[in-house]
């Protein structure tokens, strides 16, 4: 009889435990579903369309008040010297990683993910300019702004154009539509439509940083 009582108690605990665990698990799933509704902003750089005019660079510097001699966005000429007529340019800027090392290493949480948009951005007031984020970035696309003395990165114009409901300055400025900005979590968005029909790559994917920038490379045709 004594054993029976113990078994009953054990079964009770087991039953209660599974019920509570089950509901807890369910609420976790609910949370995950809610989180999925958050936007995940991304950008496409189409190398086939970029002519290297650097209008994007100019617009970025103007809109985000980037000091003279510094850039958040740079267009690098990667034309193969052996085929000088086949121009190739590449956008160099923050890759807006989903697993951002800069956010992970920042000791003062100045480099953070914006709660509303999920964009990796900077709070210059909390930045002590230890440069840890700069050396931790696998893409080397962060710098100390000479004026604010704080680390800085491309944040898709979060505090400037995006706040006003406009597209990032570089996207607005591009005459050739080489840049597409949008919400990767929105199945109907233009950026997703392009990603469905075109092959794109992420930079240095082996670092596991899951960049939100996608590059559509120039490929040889007619082979």
């Amino acid at each position: 009889m004594e054993n029976d009582g113990k078994r009953r108690a054990f079964l009770k605990v087991l039953g209660l435990g599974s019920v509570s665990l089950g509901t807890a698990g369910y609420s976790v799933v609910m949370e995950a579903e809610k989180a999925e509704k958050k936007p995940h902003y991304g950008m496409i750089f189409d190398q086939n369309k970029c002519v290297g005019c650097t209008d994007c660079e100019v617009a970025c510097r103007k809109v985000n008040a980037v000091p003279e001699g510094q850039v958040r966005l740079y267009v690098e000429n990667k034309t193969d010297p052996e085929t000088p007529m086949e121009k190739k340019y590449v956008r160099v800027s923050c890759q807006q990683c989903e697993e951002a090392p800069c956010v992970a290493v920042c000791p003062s949480k100045a480099c953070h993910r914006d709660a509303k948009t999920g964009i990796v951005s900077m709070n210059p007031d909390d930045c002590i300019a230890c440069k840890y984020c700069i050396v931790a970035c696998p893409y080397d696309v962060r710098f100390i702004n000479h004026k604010t003395k704080a680390a800085e990165n491309c944040n898709f114009c979060l505090n400037t154009n995006l706040a006003k409901g406009k597209e990032p300055a570089c996207v607005e400025a591009c005459k050739y539509k080489a840049l597409v900005f949008g919400d990767l979590n929105d199945e109907a968005s233009y950026i997703n439509q392009i990603l469905h029909v075109k092959d794109s790559v992420r930079m240095k994917p082996t670092f596991g940083t899951k960049p939100s920038l996608r590059y559509i490379p120039v490929v040889k045709v007619g082979v």
């Binding site: 590449v90 440069k131 962060r142 710098f143 490379p217 490929v219």
Partner: peptide, 17 residues
Amino acid sequence: MNGAINFTYGFSHGVEW
């Protein structure tokens, strides 16, 4: 590294630390 596309330019200049 992607053979198809990459960049080598960096915003830091040499040794930051």
